[in-house]
Design a protein around this nucleic acid. Structure first.
Lengths: 115, 115
DNA sequence: ATTTCATTTCGTTATTTGACGAAATATAAA
DNA sequence: TTTATATTTCGTCAAATAACGAAATGAAAT
């Protein structure tokens, strides 16, 4: 039960939910998320480590950056069921829509570099 | 987004999850849950009011008692999707199995009365 | 090897949360 | 109407959580 509770807990914070929704768009590095969320890097990093430990996201390295994305192979049936549901949910939410818009302007690799 | 966060938050506490799982068996009054959970009535009452405010459970009166059960008509698509999943999950969990067993012995209306 | 810079870890602080018992409320029985 | 009892509300306290800046870490570039 602890694993499932951890998963729900990781999804019950507004900023972590925004992170999950943003990662449905594309993999992101910490600095990009920092810009969209308006939080400090240490705070975003803590949220990411919590989501990772809950089994919802994973990371890979690209040069000096660490990119995060939603897990490709969930470690539990619960997460495998929740992730698809989460992509249907909240797409009409104003904050989420705004994050999606801002994500377009915050791309480290192209135009507006954030870090 | 706040409603969904509230739903997830209500599901990220061990005792509230045990309550949800117990209510999958049958409607229960506060005193019955108190016995199984080993918590004070005020604590159980607080958990119930949180689950109710999240839209997961509802209540009805029967004499001097107030019975709680899972909502028949969820107020959101999210809850409508989550409730069926929750009945598949955690049925092999030791704590949940133990609660199920104890529920059989704690029936206010028959044999062992708890309150 | 040193510098640079993205990220994580650490220490601190304010807020939220879960627990309790006591008091208040409500409702059925006497 | 008074009594009995199930439930909720209130006040309190300890523990968990989310935020920050500063310092530490790690990996690529010079």
């Amino acid at each position: 039960m602890d694993n499932l509770l951890k998963t729900f807990k990781s999804l019950s914070d507004k900023n972590r939910m925004r992170i999950v929704k943003m990662l449905q768009v594309r993999p992101l590095c910490v600095c990009e998320m920092t810009v969209v969320l308006g939080l400090s890097m240490s705070t975003v990093s803590a949220h990411l480590s919590l989501l990772k430990s809950a089994g919802l996201i994973e990371s890979f390295k690209d040069g000096r950056w660490i990119y995060y994305n939603l897990v490709k192979n969930p470690t539990s049936q619960e997460i495998a069921s929740l992730l698809p549901l989460l992509s249907y949910w909240l797409n009409d939410d104003e904050i989420v829509k705004n994050d999606f818009e801002r994500l377009k302007t915050v791309d480290r690799e192209t135009s507006m570099s954030c870090c």
